[in-house]
Design a protein around this nucleic acid. Structure first.
Length: 853
RNA sequence: GCGGGCGUGGCGGAAUUGGUAGACGCGCCGGACUCAAAAUCCGGUUCUGGCGACAGAGUGUCGGUUCGAGUCCGACCGCCCGCACCA
């Protein structure tokens, strides 16, 4: 018997699959059902990490399984290749972003191929290739014509020292990551996709996505954030104009004690012009960075403008107007009214600035006399009080009433509002798809005509100074206006990389050289049947891709609105963290397992931290290449699927991977030890199988059902457990006669066939050893015999007052009476009910008998 | 801060969706084989008490619904993810 040599066998089968084009995409009308499985394509960061291995292994299991079930499968791979890290590398290491990116792609392609993935590599592309992004530019022009593109001002993080726009992740505690300077908020004209045009449709579409995780749908629903409320006009007293306030709680208007406007509200800016103190406060507000998180967690600050506004229902009641750092200009009208009694943030604000707190909603049993608010706002249901015409009404009725009243008086209107903002899609960076537009003094903004595409990125750029290399390129931006021919300036913004990933799944259907999409191919393959990726993309990427598909539908490119029929979000790969005596992080290779626990190689004690996402900064990474070199791809794949449920985080452990490796060796041993003694591959079942043979057959057919169900339901860990059980059953049988050996062949063949999606190379090698000339990838999935899947007898639990007292074996179809009788016959049961009155007997056939005494 | 999720033996987890909690794997303990070790094979392994048969407790915490709760409801605690220029 030979030991299984993973290195040799994996190479052999990868070559053989490639030679047979085993994973090519059938593009003819085969009549077979089609299945499109896609994993989120990777950013070519340098090397693959375990998260990639997990993601692509899961997709590969689905792809191989569906192929075995007779589907034509599309399973492609590409590269999300534009983005900031390439520019950072360019600045730090003087390597061109393109060179860096393509080098990384080569490395990572090699690593992925070593995993033996069932991918059609002929469809590979990188989004940074002009062959891809020229089509993206064409799509942009179509969107522009369809009115889905808009230019408007929005704010960015500006680093005043580096003179550059910062991404949110480059802002640390309100300072630029390189310069350390306090960031400023700047307004720039930017390009937007009008995703808000589709807000209602994106919301409604969620209800049709029944193969998406509920949590993702809930997150998207909350992100879109549709709310029904009111726009209320607060007239400025002793001056001109109104403050327009959006609220979802107009019922609490009589509890108002102030109004607050955003720091970049037009009124704030107007006031700043005449008052340097206001200007200084606004500047203070702008020093936290633009992220919502930074704004929301910053200390709540307000500035009393001295302005007062009249209450919409009482001219004589005036409220102060504050500028507040927690009011967002992007949401609603950029102004709120504060009702401290019923909103925690307003309450904190009111306490800080000494503003009145008047409760107007009272929980059941409370009255305006009995109820007061101390340091906790009341945001529950109740009945209105202190509220004039709303007194005595419940909250929903009060809302209707106050809206009617506002509209009657012309003091406000009903308004539906969305939290969702338009998609700001332009970036002041080099390594992205150039935005095909020209700025002309006479004609304004002019899109680049279709026949002048692509707008190519210039190669000769430098990264020695911060800022956008396109902007300071000596010649690139100087062009003639496509409209009037006068000298003009090319747009130097590039696309947000989310644009690239919003249509790549459509491009995979068919690489049409002449157009962005191949309509027939898209119709054939879309929508994606199963999309797999991390939850971190639950909102942005997935929402943008849904928007893009709708926009493409509107422009006539595709016929469907929803790109991803099934979605699965997998967990991260974690690893323990280690620290040496000096408090510095240690990598797993630097740590050895000694007698007294973990230590460094020179005997220093090691502190073991909890398991966290693998990251370079904590040095708790494990390189897949090392694992594949040591154990083989199959073992790595198997471990990725075993133990942890796919949606949950997986803890990488050395002993776990060794367990997986032992299993692969065990399967190989069982096959190679038995192969010679087995009856031929297609021998008919001999008559009169013994008990052991029948028992093994039952185990084998149950495994077929269990593994099939596990894969279908994305419960790969339970599928793996089924295969372990089958392996145990196979190794338990010591064949005594031909019948045993026949059953052994069946069980071994099932084991190998069912293992193929998880460990394809070993399965192929074992299949060949079992005497098969046709590779497994061309062999159908087995069918379980229903008669062998169910047992003849079932174990039924007998409880007395909910406590387990006995278990009884009963024929599968026993009725209630038989179960009850057998239960009472048990001595333990007799003992437990002795001297008690039987009040009730609950029988769940095949499950449980519960005697209530 | 807001939104979403998760929590079960020493560890990763399973539990036909309200019906025997702990499948399967890891680790550990004991045994076989071996001069020895590795590898492999067999047995045991939730906790507490007991030599034992057995008894009791037990799914983050507290409470509730039910004949019956890991599963449903309420409150709390802890951890993780996202927050619009990271991808």
């Amino acid at each position: 018997m030979s030991r299984y040599n993973a290195k040799v066998a994996e190479r052999k089968w990868q070559d053989r699959w490639a030679a047979r084009d085993s994973f090519g995409t059938p593009d003819d009308e085969s009549g077979r059902p089609r299945y499109y499985v896609l994993e989120m394509f990777p950013y070519p960061s340098g090397r693959i990490h375990m998260g990639h291995v997990r993601n692509y292994t899961m997709g590969d299991v689905v792809a191989r399984y569906k192929r075995a079930r007779g589907f034509d499968v599309l399973h492609p791979m590409g590269w999300d290749a534009f983005g900031m890290p390439a520019e950072n590398a360019a600045a730090e290491r003087k390597v061109h972003p393109a060179a860096w990116t393509y080098q990384n792609i080569d490395t990572m392609r090699g690593q992925l191929k070593s995993l033996g993935l069932a991918i059609d590599w002929k469809r590979e592309f990188a989004t940074c290739s002009p062959d891809y992004y020229r089509h993206e530019q064409a799509l942009f022009l179509a969107f522009y014509e369809a009115g889905l593109v808009e230019r408007k001002k929005s704010h960015v993080n500006w680093d005043p020292v580096d003179q550059t726009v910062l991404a949110n992740e480059q802002v640390i505690d309100g300072r630029g990551w390189r310069s350390g300077a306090l960031v400023e908020l700047r307004h720039l004209s930017q390009w937007f996709f009008k995703i808000t045009d589709f807000a209602d449709d994106l919301l409604a579409g969620l209800d049709t996505l029944d193969r998406w995780p509920d949590k993702v749908r809930i997150m998207q629903r909350n992100w879109i954030g549709r709310s029904e409320g009111a726009r209320v006009h607060f007239r400025i007293t002793g001056g001109e104009g109104t403050v327009e306030v959006y609220t979802t709680r107009p019922d609490t208007l009589f509890g108002a004690s102030f109004c607050a406007i955003a720091s970049d509200h037009p009124l704030s800016r107007q006031l700043a012009a005449g008052n340097p103190e206001v200007g200084a406060f606004i500047e203070l507000c702008h020093q936290s960075g633009t992220s919502e998180e930074a704004i929301e967690t910053a200390e709540k600050l307000g500035f009393d403008t001295g302005l007062r506004v009249a209450h919409p229902f009482d001219e004589s009641w005036t409220l102060p107007v504050y500028i507040a750092n927690f009011v967002l200009m992007d949401y609603g009208t950029g102004a709120i009214f504060g009702c401290p009694a019923h909103d925690q943030r307003d309450l904190d604000f009111a306490r800080k600035y000494g503003l009145p707190v008047t409760p107007v909603v009272f929980p059941e049993g409370e009255t305006p006399e009995s109820f007061s608010v101390a340091d906790k706002a009341y945001d529950g249901d109740g009945v209105l009080g202190n509220s004039r015409f709303m007194d005595g009404l419940a909250v929903p009725a009060a809302k209707t009433r106050v809206l009617d009243e506002l509209e009657r008086l012309g003091a406000g209107t009903r308004e539906v509002n969305y939290r969702l903002r338009d998609w700001g899609a332009s970036r002041q960076r080099y390594w992205g798809c150039p935005l095909p537009a020209v700025h002309c003094e006479a004609c304004g903004v002019v899109p680049v005509p279709k026949d002048q595409l692509p707008v190519l990125l210039p190669d000769d750029v430098t990264f020695d100074v911060p800022g956008n290399p396109l902007d300071r390129h000596p010649t690139w931006k100087h062009v003639d206006c496509p409209s009037c021919g006068a000298p003009a300036r090319r747009e130097t913004d590039t696309f947000d990389t989310f644009v690239d990933s919003s249509w790549y799944f459509l491009r995979f259907c068919g690489l049409n050289p002449d157009a962005p999409l191949d309509a027939d191919a898209v119709a054939r393959w879309m929508p994606v049947d199963q999309y797999i990726g991390g939850v971190e993309h639950a909102v942005l990427h997935l929402l943008y891709a849904r928007f893009f598909t709708r926009a493409l539908q509107k422009c006539g490119f595709v016929s469907m609105a929803e790109p991803f029929q099934g979605l699965f979000t997998q967990g991260m790969v974690n690893h323990e963290t280690y620290k040496g005596p000096d408090g510095k992080w240690l990598s797993p290779e630097e740590v050895v397992r000694g007698e007294a626990g973990l230590a460094t190689k020179d005997g220093q004690p090691v502190t073991v931290g909890r398991s966290e996402k693998m990251s370079k900064s904590k040095k708790n990474t494990v390189d897949p290449t090392d694992i594949i070199a040591t154990y083989g791809a199959d073992t790595a794949r198997w471990y990725m699927l075993s133990d942890s449920p796919p949606e949950r985080d997986l803890d990488w452990s050395e002993s776990g991977i060794e367990g997986a490796w032992r299993h692969s060796q065990r399967v190989w041993r069982l096959v190679s030890e038995n192969a010679d003694a087995l009856p031929p591959a297609d021998a008919p079942a001999p008559a009169g199988l013994g008990d052991a043979a029948v028992a093994l057959r039952r185990a084998a057919h149950k495994a077929v059902k269990g593994v099939t169900d596990g894969i279908e339901n994305f419960r790969f860990n339970t599928a793996v457990a089924q295969l372990y059980e089958l392996t145990n059953a196979v190794s338990a049988l010591k064949p005594a006669d031909l019948g045993d050996r026949w059953a052994l062949r069946e069980a071994l063949e099932f084991l190998v066939r069912l293992s193929e999606p998880m460990m394809p190379h070993l399965a192929e090698e074992a299949w060949e050893a079992l005497g098969h000339a046709t590779p497994l990838v061309e062999t159908a999935w087995p069918e379980a015999d229903p008669a062998l899947v169910v047992d003849e007898t079932v174990k039924v639990a007998v409880q007395v007052n909910g406590k387990l007292r006995a278990t009884i074996d009963l024929p599968r179809d026993s009725d209630r009476e038989a179960a009850e009788q057998a239960a009472f016959a048990e001595p333990k049961v007799q003992q437990a009910v002795a001297g008690k009155e039987i009040r009730k007997v609950i029988v769940v056939p095949g499950r449980i008998v519960n005697i209530v005494a």
